[in-house]
Nucleic acid binder design. Structure first.
Lengths: 182, 182
DNA sequence: GTCACTGTACCGTCTGGATGGTACAGTGGC
DNA sequence: GCCACTGTACCATCCAGACGGTACAGTGAC
């Protein structure tokens, strides 16, 4: 048993890093195996097909995100915020490696757009939450959209560093969320 | 001469539609040729390599967007708005086909992330513009981020229809932009 | 006006390499 | 003994790109 759970994790993280540096088109089982220090057979042992690998990447992204949300909501200070608050914070506090996991969305979209179905449900739920405890659900949705915009631009390295500042933008988003009418 | 200009255009639009329905991984010169009613050689005549095709897709996206912006800014009513106004409107008034052109970003990212370099410059310029004529550049950037978030979620069909309404969201974004301090 | 030539817009075929997936024998730690 | 692999061999398919060729409109010299 060569630490099987973390091998799975390592494969998934390696896959994401390939998408990051080389693009989703170059996400191949061979490439993942080589970069993760495994044989092709080894990768296929954990994920019987490329589709399964992509599904797992997307699932990990959503699980990690859901877990982070759950923990944030347990914190006493956070419970005073509107629902949109932890959604913004969860995105803000991500480590670069976790943030890169969002590339699973690109990889899935590249291979087969129908793989995104679970993500659609997940995101719809976040929007529902964001609008659930304010009388101005639309404004809450605008804030969530901005958070998602930040995520996507960041993920594609399209964010202009000189013009904007991630941390300040998140701080502002949080501030705006505190002003939502209850 | 079989209307050569529109053939080029047709190829680019066909390429985008393939990315939309099948995913960027299935964007091949063969597939484009077949869907556009050309031979592979015919496509390669217009775009000497797949990379050139992707560059042209991205360039078309930015040209179209820039043109739409330019026209909007000439309209008298629009000139009273802050700079972020037309940026939001340009995104709002797009036809579905134009909106799908944004998938060029995904296709480029899938093939080679470095293809996105021109887009990076373009987006940086938009952010600079958005923050240039208000004392609250940060808020303008939040609005632009929301617009981009809308674009990306829409492009991946991740927008929850039941929860949000595109047109209402755009209207709200425009309203918020009018409240920006000058 | 016709002839030689050029440039444009393709078509159809081919090749080498990459890719997903299968199969299966072996191995080392627990 | 079985779990978690390795390693090799292999196959069918896909794909980018090169290449040779075709059709034809236009041009300019004579």
């Amino acid at each position: 048993m060569n630490t099987p759970v973390s091998t799975r994790q390592k494969i998934l993280e390696t896959a994401v890093s390939i998408v990051d540096t080389n693009g989703a088109a170059h996400l191949t089982i061979d490439a993942v195996a080589a970069a993760a220090g495994l044989s092709k057979g080894g990768v296929l042992y954990h994920f019987p097909s490329k589709r399964a690998l992509l599904e797992a990447m997307l699932a990990l992204l959503m699980e990690t995100s859901a877990l982070r949300l759950e923990k944030l909501r347990e914190e006493p200070g956070v419970q005073l915020l509107p629902m949109i608050g932890p959604l913004i914070m969860a995105e803000q506090e991500q480590q670069p490696k976790q943030r890169a996991m969002a590339l699973a969305i690109l990889a899935a979209a590249a291979e087969d757009p129908s793989l995104l179905t679970p993500a659609r449900t997940y995101i719809a739920e976040r929007f529902r939450e964001a609008g659930s405890d304010t009388t101005d659900a639309q404004l809450a949705h605008v804030l969530l959209l901005a958070t998602e915009g930040l995520r996507f631009l960041d993920m594609l390295n399209l964010l202009p560093d000189g013009v904007t500042n991630r941390q300040q933008l998140f701080a502002r988003l949080l501030e705006l969320s505190r002003e939502l009418p209850r």
